[in-house]
Amino acid sequence: MHFKKMLQTKPEASAFLMLMAMTFVFSLLSPTFLTLGNFQIVLQPIPEIALVAIGVTILMISGEFDLSVGSVFALSPMVMVLLMAAGFPLPVSMIGGLVVAALVGLANAFITIRLGIPSFIATLGMLFMARSMTVVISDGFPPPFPRDLDLWWIVGKVDLLRVSVFWLLGIGILLGIWLRKFDFGSWIFATGGSQESARNMGINVNLVKTTTFMLCSMLAGFAGMIQVFRIKAIVPSMGTGYELTAIAATVIGGAALAGGVGSVIGAVIGALLLAFIENIIILTRVDANWFRFAVGAIIVIAVTINKMTRDVAARAKYKEVEDD
C-alpha cells in the first residue's frame, strides 16, 4: 500500500519506474546501451533540454504554457554572441542574453495576464516573434563563436560528464527546494491547482505567474547558452521544436496539463526518458523512414503507462478511504 501511495503522491514516481524498466529492456535490446561511452554521449545534451523542461514544468504547475521556449533558446545566446562580437566580456554578454530572455517571459506574462490571452496562444505568437528577432538581430549571419574561450566552468569535461550536468543538478536542486520548501513554491502549486482559491487565500496570482513565465524563459535562454558553449557554434535555427520536446518531457515526468501537479525531478526524468528512447532507436538501427514513428509511439506508450500507474494508485487510495 505504501508503494501505491508513493505513486499517488509523487508525480514523478511512475516516470522513474518507467525509466528503470526501459533501461532494463533497452539494455537487453542493445549491448551498447548500458556502456559508459554511450551514457557520455546521451548525457551531453540532457542539461540543455532538461533545463528547458524544468522551466516548462514549473510554469505548467502554475497553470500556464510556454511554446516560445525553443525560440528563446536561440534568441538569448544569439544576443550573447553578438554582444561578445561587439567587444563585451563574456559575463556581461551572458547577463545581456538572460535579460532579453527575462523580457520575453515578462512579455508573455503581460499578454497572458493583462490582456487575457490564453498562454498557449500568447506564447505561440512569441515563438514566431522571438525566432524572427533571432534572425533579424544577426542579419541572418551570426558571427563565428570564439573557440579560444575558456568554458571549462560550464561545459568542460569531468571524466565522462560535462560540467553542465552539475549546473543542471545545482539548478534542479535549488528549484526543487524552492518549490517544496518555500512559501512561493506552495503558491505556485496553489495557483495552478485552483486560481480562484489561491486568490481567495491572498496569494498574488499575477506575481506568481509572471515569475514563472520569466523563470521559464530565462532557463530556456541559459540552456541555449550551454548548447552554444558545448558545440561552439550558433545557428539561428537552434532549439527549433524544443518546445514540444520540453512539454513531452514535462508530461512524461508526471506534470498535469491542467496545472497544480508536477516536479523538477520529473522533468529531468522525462528528458532522460526521451533521450534514452532516441538513443535505443539509433542503437537498434531503426530504418530512417520509421524513426519518427518509433519515437512518437514510445512517447505515447510512456505517457499511457504513466497515467495507468497513477490511476491504479488513485483507485487504491479511494478504496482505502472507503474502507476506513
Binding site: A74, R131, S132, T134, V135, D139, G140, F141, P142, V235, P236, S237, T240
Partner: peptide
C-alpha cells in the same frame, strides 16, 4: 524558415 543560414 527564416532561421536557415543557407537561405539567408
Amino acid at each position: 524558415g527564416i532561421d536557415n543560414t543557407f537561405w539567408q
